[in-house]
Amino acid sequence: MLLSPAADRNQDDILSVLAEVLEEQSHRELFGLELGSGTGQHVVHFAQELTYITWLPSDIKEESRASIRAYIGATKVTRVLEPVHLDASEPWEKWAGLPRSSCDIIVAINLFHVSSFKTAEGVFQGAGEILKQNGILMTYGPYAINGVIIPASNEELDRTLRERNPEWGLPDIDVLRQIAFSNGMRLERMIEMPESNKCLVFRKL
């Protein structure tokens, strides 16, 4: 079972945004997909608190999927399905067999800055297909805005990431907004979060 201190710190803040964004739909059963679930801490925490959502966690690493299974077992949570292998950079048809218009909510936490631009494009292309009408894609992490990265800690993070992998780094919100729009979604809200992060809420038109 893997443990992420960052997930421990941010899970309640992200949960609050999720609960607020989905409040008007909380009277019905929803289906959610988490991309890049990592340790599994987030998805299990969300499932324990938002009992109207059934979650499908996913990750490209078997180590992460094993950790998710361990958290499911330890918490005995019933609304988290068996984690699947899913590479968001691939065409949506390869997304674990999920049919078109099958998801109410897709969540990607701390994914974009440690993956390629192709992955970010894939997330929006896939979400544009598998989200239901008015479905929501919520992303969380550090971002640039119109080419500007603030504060200095995020600037340093961006530099460090690009040194590790030239394809990594903080994505620009304006670029993501344009990709979203070209895939039938619009950026509905940008929410300031602790530690210089943001939640971006995109809605399928």
Rank of each mutant, 00 (worst) to 15 (best):
P171H: 06
G36Q: 09
R69E: 08
V201T: 05
H27Q: 14
A120I: 03
I179N: 02
R79P: 01
V84Q: 11
E163N: 13
T119N: 10
Q133R: 14
V80F: 04
L137K: 03
R28E: 14
F124E: 03
K198S: 09
W55H: 03
H42T: 08
E156I: 13
E82T: 09
D12Y: 13
D87F: 06
A152R: 14
N154E: 10
I60Y: 05
R100Q: 14
S58R: 02
P91L: 02
A120H: 07
K204W: 01
M193I: 01
G169V: 04
E163W: 05
T51F: 00
T78P: 00
P171C: 06
G128H: 06
R9F: 14
I149S: 01
R162A: 11
R177H: 07
R65Q: 08
D87C: 03
S102G: 08
T139G: 11
G169F: 03
S196G: 02
A127Q: 03
R189K: 13
S116I: 04
S89G: 03
T119R: 02
I68W: 00
H42Y: 08
I136V: 15
A19C: 12
L22Q: 14
D87T: 06
T160L: 15
R28C: 11
D12V: 11
S26L: 05
L161E: 10
I191Y: 03
Q133K: 14
V123P: 04
P166V: 08
T119Y: 03
E49R: 12
R28A: 12
E188C: 07
I130M: 08
L81N: 08
P171V: 09
S101Y: 12
E29H: 14
A120Y: 02
V84R: 10
E188P: 00
I173V: 14
I136M: 13
E195W: 09
L30K: 10
T39S: 15
R162I: 10
A180P: 00
Q25C: 14
V175Q: 10
Q25F: 15
L35R: 05
L50A: 01
S196P: 01
K204G: 01
V123A: 07
R162V: 09
L176V: 05
G97W: 07
P57R: 01
E20C: 13
E195A: 14
Q125N: 12
G184F: 02
T160F: 13
E29Q: 15
E188L: 11
L111W: 00
I72A: 05
G126P: 04
G40L: 03
L33V: 12
G128Q: 05
Q48V: 01
T160V: 15
L131R: 06
M190K: 10
E90D: 07
L50W: 00
A96M: 07
W55Y: 03
L131N: 05
I130W: 07
E29C: 13
S116K: 06
G40H: 05
C199W: 00
R28I: 12
I173N: 01
A6S: 15
N146Q: 11
R9Y: 14
E167R: 12
L30S: 09
L56S: 01
I191S: 05
V201E: 03
T139Y: 04
P171D: 07
D13S: 15
Q125G: 13
R100G: 07
A47Y: 00
Y52V: 00
E121A: 04
C103K: 13
E23F: 13
F112R: 00
